[in-house]
């Protein structure tokens, strides 16, 4: 564990807390893309199938936290605050993302096993999971401050992971091409959002 990775994970946690706080405080999930949240839940569930494998207490607790909160957010959006969710704003076609990521995972993976292909699928899917949310923002043209904070925390998390990989490459000789390429694309998507947002 290094400084970049720990801070990145904490930013990731923070982004989820910000989102939960926004929904609970305003009792509304307006401006939040259910499709993006659904994709994140799929990402966590398919990536953490190795949950029984022990790496560290930190690792296990974080995995449980991410799976639990992502499903809880779906519950809040689809059941508890259902009335505040406007599906007509959330029109991105995620079928294509899911299909393309699955196909890529079947072709480009480290080993052709059930767990490994789904792990790879989750890496590819995470890279593009924010697209429905960005699409929604571009359609409505305006984001609540809190939604911007959410996206900022998520973007910071991704950016810090890039620094973590550079750090690990030099200190541990660590390499993970699949994660690097997907992560670079993911970070680029956020940078694009920040650039547009900053200019406004």
């Amino acid at each position: 564990m290094n400084f970049f990775r720990l801070t990145a994970d904490l930013m990731h946690l923070m982004s989820i807390f910000v989102l939960l706080l926004k929904i609970q405080k305003t009792r509304s999930c307006s401006g939040i893309s259910f499709k993006t949240q659904l994709l994140y839940a799929v990402v966590f569930v398919t990536r953490y199938l190795d949950l029984p494998k022990w790496i560290s207490l930190y690792n296990t607790l974080m995995k449980i936290f991410f799976i639990a909160t992502s499903i809880y957010i779906l519950y809040l959006m689809k059941v508890k605050f259902r009335a505040t969710y406007d599906p007509s704003q959330d029109t991105f076609r995620i079928e294509f993302l899911l299909g393309a990521c699955l196909l890529l995972a079947l072709v480009f993976n480290y080993s052709f096993s059930f767990i490994e292909v789904l792990w790879t699928f989750s890496i590819y899917l995470e890279a593009v999971a924010i697209l429905p949310q960005l699409f929604m923002l571009s359609r409505t043209g305006e984001a609540e401050t809190i939604t911007t904070h959410y996206l900022f925390a998520l973007g910071a998390y991704r950016g810090l992971y890039l620094l973590n990989w550079i750090w690990r490459f030099y200190t541990e000789n660590y390499a993970d091409l699949i994660v690097w390429i997907a992560g670079a694309i993911q970070t680029a998507l956020y940078s694009d959002f920040f650039y547009i947002y900053y200019k406004k």
């Binding site: 990775r5 994970d9 990731h12 190795d50 494998k53 790496i55 690792n59 974080m62 995995k63 991410f66 480009f108 480290y110 080993s111 792990w119 992971y161 660590y174 390499a175 993970d176 091409l177 699949i178 994660v179």
Partner: peptide, 10 residues
């Protein structure tokens, strides 16, 4: 691609 020994990142 390069195969990491195991997936230890989140």
């Amino acid at each position: 691609p390069t195969k990491p020994s195991f997936h230890d990142e989140l």
